[in-house]
Every structure is written in structure tokens, then in C-alpha cells.
Design a protein around this nucleic acid. Structure first.
Lengths: 252, 252
DNA sequence: CAGTGGTCTAGACCACCAA
DNA sequence: TGGTGGTCTAGACCACTGC
């Protein structure tokens, strides 16, 4: 190997840094196709596999994506801001600049929606609901897309005994959505808990979100409690970690 | 290649799944050393590079780690729960089971701490503070460790003009910490905003947190506003994404 | 059908660690 | 000093895409 890198940084990292700079300078526009692996490998004077390694770094960062048989493409990073706590009083705080600029005004559309009644729940769900053995749940599954691209899948779990026969078991829950219907049933959500963790996607999650296997996902589990402290809904969301900025605002 | 896998899943993923199962079954205990790459490659009857690829999957998931010249080791996943919103009234909600179990009672220790006064701020910081050109900030940098392992680094930015000469510029800020001292100065925090995003670590961040380059980090930026709506502190935290569960609890 | 990315092999050299 | 993981090379075959 050449002795030039006195800092002894690996080739693939130096190439990745060089390409990252080119992308940030705007040498390639979002959606543009990059030269093929072999062409790039010749340009940078490395073996194809080393070139792949460099491109893989940028892919895991969300800067580029690859389509088999087609090529490498520049991805646009326009994060979506999700407000965890609905802003009630829009006062002086609304004007403050945020750390990471993100489109506030776009909201994803629902792409797919399925409802399954009378399903045996996963263990961690029945634990939180404190269900008796054999009790089942209703599962509402939705996928959200933005500009044609899947960005989030969400699965809502509700105790079957609570929602049987209500509009919650229909695809269209009517005005106000699930929470309004829970209120109709006398279990209006009074408090929420949101738990966030990050991990690598399963093969199914990666396919459903159309993200590479080496891009991590955010798991956000939102539990709704009624006024008596009973957990009445759990919404488990899975998001592409490269497209979301989460936002929580609260008083001291 | 053998034709056995009718689902045509790549070898490295099948091997990763097999090893993952062995880890979850407890065949190896946290801290245990795995057989060497070459041994494993022979066991699974694949080329060493393919074996590496499989191990890399598990490493990015946080299940194993590697030390050059030493071997591959099983990592323990005991997530730390960080409560974003201090629980004021510990009522009926406290008893509810959570989705992801995590140690609530452990708190990381501060490992390193440095204070730099009169520093020119990064652009995104001066934007939020709405500083005039040339205005400087005070930067408090801390690293947190748990059981000897770095888990988070945090950098607090405060407007220099606000804190000059106060205990905030000392390593030890006294009882109550920064926020108590800000209150002494007449700028008690009244409201907070926390912004969360996920990305791959820079080389420096990976080194400071002692995590592999392919493990993502959580960036959490906490902005504190005083009662007049002025941003008085920004705390930018960087955490190992595999060791934290974030938690927010709030009323509807 | 030609070109693309995805996977896999069989080598090689290096830096680092532990005995 | 021998074994380890980290990097790199030069091939190969495959599945998929788009013309």
C-alpha cells in the first residue's frame, strides 16, 4: 500500500470523506446517479471491494442509496420533525430557532392500513396491558409515506375486550381517530408515555421501510393511559432513523 | 455455492442469525471471548471474509464487540433509561410496566470535565442564542461512564456574557448545578426543548465513546429557555444508541 | 443482452495484543 | 513470537435492471 497517509487512515475512509465532501459541495444533486463501482474504483485507484466499502459508509449515513442492477444514487436529507407533545399554547416559544432545521409543515400520508381483531399479543404488549392469559388484542397496522417514500410503520395494539364492536375495529375510525373513539368508550387518554430506542432493523422492517439493512431504525413506543391509569393503547412505531427529528417541549 | 437455502438468504445473514440465536440462548455469557474468525469460518465452512461480514452484523447490533489483536467478545445489553421530563407527582403512573425494561436506578458518573470560556460558537449554536457576530460562549464538556464504559458525552453551551465570573465557569458549579446557578443570575430555566436525531458517529465521537464506527449514536440537543423566552443554555449530548432508552411522560 | 450491485472465495500484509 | 482482528487485492458467479 502507498505510504502517503501519514495519519494512516484507511483508504475506504479517506475515499468516503472525499465523496462526502463532493456531496456536501453539491457536485451531485439529489437523485443523481453516481458512476458505477468499477468506474469509481478505477478513478480512486483501489480495488472494487474497497470502493464498495467506502460507498457503504455513505449509505449507512443516509447520503446515498443503491439499487441492484441499476446503480448508486444521491439521497436527499430533508428530515421530518415529529412533535411528541402537542403544542397547546403557542406563545413566545414558537419563535425560537431549532438546532436541526426540518420541515415542520409536511405530514406523511397513510399508505397501507390493516386491522386484525382477536390476535394473541406479543409478550411485552400483554405485560403492559396486564392481560390475563388467553386475552387477545386488536392490532391496527399502518404505513406512512412521504413523497412516495415509506418513512414509518406503526402498529397500534388495543385490548380486544375494550374495543370489540366499536369503530376502532374498522379501517376508518372516523373524526378524531382512535383517541376520540376511546373517549366515546369512556377511556379517554389522560396521559402518555413515549419510550425511544434505536436498533438495527429486522429483514422485514428493512423491506417494509425500503431502507438498507445497515441503516438503523428508531423504535418509538407510545403508551396511552386513561384517567384511572389503565393502559388502553400501545402504538409501536418504526422509523427510518435518517429522516426523523423528534421534538419534545415542556415546562420546567 | 451450495443450493440448500431455498429462501436464498445470504450466507452471512444466516450465520449471523445462527450466532444471534446462540447468544440469546445464553451459549456465551457477556464478556466471553468467541472463537477466532478463522476458527469460526472453518466451523461454518465459509471464507474468513464472509465470517467477518456475519460478525459485523452482530457488532452493529451491539451484541458483540471486537478488540484488535485480542478477539471478539460478547457485550451485555443493559440499557440505561433516561427520563426526559422529571417526574413531579409520582402517582398511579409510576407503577405501569414499560415496553423495554431498563435499569432505572443506575446513573452514570462523570469521567472527564473541561470548561472553556470565551470560545467562538458553532453556527447552529449562535443561531439559537441569536448572538451578535463576535459574541462568544462558554463550553462545558463532560463525559459520562457506567461500569467503566463511556456511555455519553455532553457539551453545554452558554452565552459568555451571561455567565462570565459566575460559578458556571468553574468545573464544580456547586449544589443544584448549572440550572441553580442560572437561577441565581435571574435566568432560571422555565421551559425546555429536546430535539433528538440519530446518525453515524464521526471518528472523534466513536473514539471518545469507545464504540465501533458502524454503531449509530443518538444526538440529543436540550435547549433551556428562561421565563422571558430567551435561550440560556444548549446541552448537546451524544450517546451510544445501543445503551440508551429515552423516556418522555406527559399529560394529554 | 450488457451493465449493475450483491455475494463469495483465496489469498496477502499490517498493527496490535498476550503470553 | 504467534495469534488476532483490520485492511486490501484480484478474481468469480449471481440476480436484477433497463435498453
Amino acid at each position: 500500500m502507498s505510504r502517503e497517509g501519514q495519519t494512516s487512515q484507511p483508504k475506504y475512509l479517506r475515499i468516503a470523506a472525499e465523496l462526502r465532501g463532493a456531496l456536501e459541495r453539491g457536485d451531485y444533486q439529489p437523485g443523481d446517479r453516481l458512476p458505477g463501482e468499477n468506474t469509481l474504483a478505477a478513478d480512486f485507484d483501489v480495488a472494487p471491494l474497497t470502493m464498495r466499502q467506502a460507498l457503504g459508509v455513505l449509505r449507512s449515513e443516509g447520503l446515498v442509496g443503491s439499487r441492484k442492477g441499476s446503480g448508486w444514487f444521491v439521497e436527499s436529507f430533508r428530515p421530518i420533525r415529529r412533535r411528541g407533545i402537542p403544542r397547546l399554547a403557542r406563545g413566545q416559544w414558537g419563535s425560537g430557532k431549532t438546532i436541526w432545521s426540518a420541515d415542520d409543515h409536511r405530514a406523511p400520508d397513510v399508505d397501507q392500513i390493516t386491522v386484525q381483531e382477536d390476535t394473541p399479543p406479543p409478550e411485552h404488549i400483554s405485560d403492559v396491558f396486564e392481560l390475563a392469559p388467553g386475552e387477545t388484542v386488536c392490532v391496527r397496522s399502518r404505513r406512512y409515506v412521504m413523497e412516495g417514500r415509506p418513512v414509518m410503520v406503526a402498529e397500534s395494539y388495543l385490548p380486544q375486550s375494550l374495543v370489540a364492536g366499536s369503530p376502532i375495529t374498522q379501517a376508518d375510525t372516523g373524526p378524531g381517530g382512535i383517541y376520540a373513539r376511546l373517549a366515546d368508550l369512556g377511556h379517554a387518554p389522560a396521559r402518555f408515555r413515549e419510550e425511544i430506542r434505536v436498533r438495527m432493523p429486522s429483514a422485514e422492517e428493512a423491506a417494509r421501510l425500503a431502507i438498507p439493512a445497515d441503516r438503523s431504525v428508531i423504535k418509538l413506543a407510545r403508551t396511552a393511559f386513561d384517567s384511572e391509569g389503565r393502559a388502553v393503547e400501545i402504538n409501536e412505531m418504526t422509523m427510518d432513523s435518517a429522516t426523523y427529528v423528534l421534538d419534545y417541549e415542556f415546562d420546567a
